[in-house]
Structures are given as structure tokens and as C-alpha cells.
């Protein structure tokens, strides 16, 4: 993930000991209306979480490239002035397409602030 300039821009960090769990600190850079996260920043964070999970599923050795096909985000709650967590789950890894879900939450994983579904094209070398 450290090789993705956009992930660094957002301030996304990996949680040590859990390869697919990420955090997003609350800061001006991700602020929407006063006191709340910007929907675009939440969506972007979910995309990073989905990509990290997919790369993990493909394996670090893999030289496969992935291209996003589409993304659907549901915004369920406002993102408040506190850290956000995010995790992607690969629901199917095929030879050409991968389906990935990602959720973001703040206090309780059972109360997500947003959830995304992404489809990726896998281009194997």
C-alpha cells in the first residue's frame, strides 16, 4: 500500500499484525461538511481497502495487474471526528475477475458508516 501515492495522500495506515485492516485518521484532508468525513474520501478509503485485500489474496509474489471495473458505495452513517477503520474481503477470486466487498466503521464493525462492492479485472502476466 505504501507504493500508492493516493493512499499516502489520504493518510491511510495499515494496522500491524492484520494484513487487510486499515485506518484513516480524521483530518482536514478528508473533511466534508464541518465535523464529518467527505463521502468521496470514504469511498476512496474503501477502494484502497478493497485493493489491499485483493493484492493480499493474489499473493505478494504475483505479478498480476488489477484494473477497477466498477464500484458501488452505500453511505449508511455520517463519518464523525474520530479514526475510521476499513477492511476488504475478496468474495470471489477468478482467473479474470475478482469481486471484493469493503466496509468502513468507526466504533463498532457491526455499525458500518459505509460499504462498497467492487469488481476488478485481473490481468495476469
Amino acid at each position: 500500500m505504501d507504493d500508492i501515492p493516493y493512499a499516502r495522500f489520504l493518510g491511510v495506515a495499515a494496522v500491524e499484525g492484520d494484513p487487510t485492516l486499515l485506518t484513516l485518521p480524521f483530518a482536514d484532508i478528508v473533511l466534508g461538511r464541518p465535523g464529518f468525513l467527505h463521502g468521496g474520501a470514504i469511498g476512496g478509503f474503501l477502494e484502497v481497502a478493497a485493493l489491499v485485500a485483493l493484492r493480499h489474496a493474489l499473493g505478494i509474489e504475483s505479478d498480476a495487474r488489477v484494473k477497477p471495473i466498477n464500484l458501488t458505495v452505500d453511505f449508511m452513517r455520517g463519518g464523525r471526528d474520530k479514526p475510521t477503520f476499513g477492511r476488504g474481503i475478496v468474495t470471489r477470486l477468478g482467473t479474470r475477475v475478482a469481486n471484493v466487498n469493503a466496509t468502513a466503521w468507526q466504533d463498532d464493525p457491526a455499525r458500518p458508516i459505509a460499504a462498497a462492492r467492487m469488481n476488478y479485472l485481473i490481468v495476469r502476466a
Binding site: P5, H38, G39
Partner: peptide, 22 residues
């Protein structure tokens, strides 16, 4: 450059485009 999602090819990440459309 700091909004790139694919460093090998210099392609913008999809997140900023999503935020733009939102």
C-alpha cells in the same frame, strides 16, 4: 502526482474521481 493510484503507469487513483463526481 500525489493522487496517483497506479505508480507504474502514472494513472490517477479512482478515489479522487469518485470524490469529484460526488
Amino acid at each position: 502526482a500525489d493522487l496517483i493510484g497506479e505508480p507504474e503507469r502514472g494513472v490517477l487513483a479512482s478515489g479522487p474521481i469518485l470524490a469529484l463526481m460526488d
